[in-house]
Write a protein that binds this DNA or RNA. Structure first.
Lengths: 338, 338
DNA sequence: ATGAAAGCGCTAACAT
DNA sequence: ATGTTAGCGCTTTCAT
């Protein structure tokens, strides 16, 4: 039966067990230099009193907080949500807690959040792409706190990075559309300053260039700008797009909604490939052809790397891990239509 | 320019400003009993040294951590993700940080998480439904830590609760299906011990009972049990369901995937209503008729209530807030088909 | 209005 | 193997 959690201190435990404070502390920290009998006594006392160590006090002394920060741009993105779950699982297994810091992309908020984290003595940071552009990331990076970045190498910073083969996958997806004979392929993305977006755009352009096809891009500052009107305008010209390559999940949803509203048939009126796969991709008619990122793995690999740094097991140069993506062909790209 | 964040202490600030530690502390805490001139001096020193207060130390003394815990069952659920975002926004505006605790429904893990939170002296807990069944929630509830529960009243516990009109909405949805002439309506849900599920089932049954229609239920222990086979089996009988009422988003996705795999046409072969709306509900053909919960508001109301408790502004009896839902008719229920 | 001193719960030298 | 003594960085009586 657990008690309040506020009042019973290690001192109380020591007293109850008839040992010194330090001995009790040793038990708490699994020190080896203990007589089994002594340890048993202390453990019994702990259980009896319902002792809960005060992590704040432990952290104050050791300058560690047993907490890591997770900075994510957009919790509503299933990509992000899935990654978070992996991170949290790994963190728990290491006895760490995850503090959430979501800025929604607002740079000044992000700064505030980062400060809040520093003040809490967090032991590490996992930063998810699109959290920031150039960002004030420099702050924690300059400090002693290990950082692992998912999906976005930080310029000139020495941190571990986990990414996927953005450019290559985007190129392959574009080539797939070209293979279907589409020549007016519209790349739709948001926040083009972000690494992931830029890389995907680069892959798209590379594919077009090779075939000498002109690029068509709808790159907006923010996903929210991908309104029906925005798409309608692009599609209104004399030579409208015959295919769309959507550069992330949020864009894909926006496109699907817009195409639906404009009563465009996929892929008859316009084909579609999505960078980012999602649960309902095969339910929508036709199924949405997509580039799938190994989302869970991105999260867990990031967390594992972080803990290796935190626990000092890894003090080598920053690693860049690149995970492969998967190309999932369904009907929206035009396959099965020919 | 921010410094390391670890080394500059309030003592350093006091020294640099030529005042006592306590005076510096007063400035930090916006005490009124200060000569403006003194305050200016201290603030300048703070800025100059790049002082960052150590929240762990503050918390140790004051027994507060400026952190709240958010216990959520399933981050991948957009319902949960959206609510989290609201909570986090409110928390930030109060200068609090959000610690994530997701058990994935595992009761023993949940206990571990709850302990971890207690040890960190968290100031409050927001618990999202489906986190636990009966749960060891008793622990924090018995303690001094304020708790607000979203979507699931805790039996006999004295906590604020925010829910939606689950039963009424489920009943209305079922009646809508009955109104279309469906008489073999299958309710599909998971974790029937959860309040939300139970309430929705109750609403469903009430509607059927009134019309003297026999109930058909597929209630599984966990969402993962809603496989294609499970549905196929139910639909295989001599009198298969002619409509499905899915009791939450996860179930809806599972049903959509299963129906798709079984090549059932909605609503011709079988109609569908979803409890929980989602982004792509109108993109799928036909659009999915859904009960929409005011998700953001659930989150922000919960957080606001929590902070009123934390800050002692509200010490009245536990409040039960019930928010209305919205019924969004699209095509999957059979509307537009007649 | 400001300061000196004690202590929050714990860990870590340094004894013994 | 166990105890003693200082603090970690901050807040808080209680003086002044």
């Amino acid at each position: 039966m657990l008690k309040n959690g506020g009042s019973v201190t290690l001192k109380d435990v020591a007293h109850a067990a008839g040992v010194s404070l330090k001995t009790a502390s040793r038990v708490l920290n699994n020190s080896s230099e203990l007589r089994p009998e002594t340890e048993r006594l202390v453990r019994e006392a702990m259980a009896r009193l319902g002792y809960q160590p005060n992590e704040l006090a432990r952290g104050l002394k050791s300058k560690k907080s047993a907490a890591i920060a997770l900075i994510a741009p957009n919790l509503a993105d299933p990509f992000v949500a899935t990654a978070i779950r992996s991170v949290q699982n790994v963190a728990r297994s290491h006895g760490y807690v995850v503090i959430l810091a979501s800025s929604g992309g607002d740079v000044s908020l992000e700064k505030t959040e980062l400060q809040a984290m520093t003040r809490r003595q967090i032991d590490g940071i996992i930063l998810m792409a699109a959290a920031s552009g150039k960002s004030d990331l420099a702050i924690p990076l300059k400090s002693r706190v290990p950082v692992v970045v998912i999906d976005e190498p930080v310029r000139g910073a020495e941190v571990d990075t986990i990414t996927v083969t953005n450019r290559k996958a985007a190129r392959a997806a574009t080539e797939h559309l070209l293979g279907h004979g589409f020549r007016r392929i519209l790349a739709v993305g948001a926040r083009p300053h972000l690494f992931t977006c830029a890389e995907r755009v680069a892959g798209y352009r590379a594919a077009l260039r090779q075939r000498d096809v002109k690029k068509m891009e709808l790159l907006v500052p923010h996903e929210a700008d991908l309104t029906i009107d925005a798409l309608a305008k692009v599609l209104a010209g004399p030579k409208p797009a015959d295919a769309i390559f959507s550069l992330n999940w949020v864009c894909t949803v926006a496109m699907l909604r817009a195409l639906n509203a404009l009563e465009k048939n996929i892929p008859r009126d316009i084909a579609l490939i999505s960078f980012d796969d999602f649960d309902l991709a095969e339910v929508i008619q036709p199924g949405i052809t997509a580039v799938r990122q190994p989302v869970s793995e991105l999260g867990s690999r990031a967390a594992k790397s972080l803990f290796e740094r935190i626990e000092g097991k890894d003090s080598s140069a920053p690693r860049k891990i690149v995970l492969p993506t998967e190309f999932i062909v369904r009907g929206s790209c035009g396959c099965g239509m020919d």
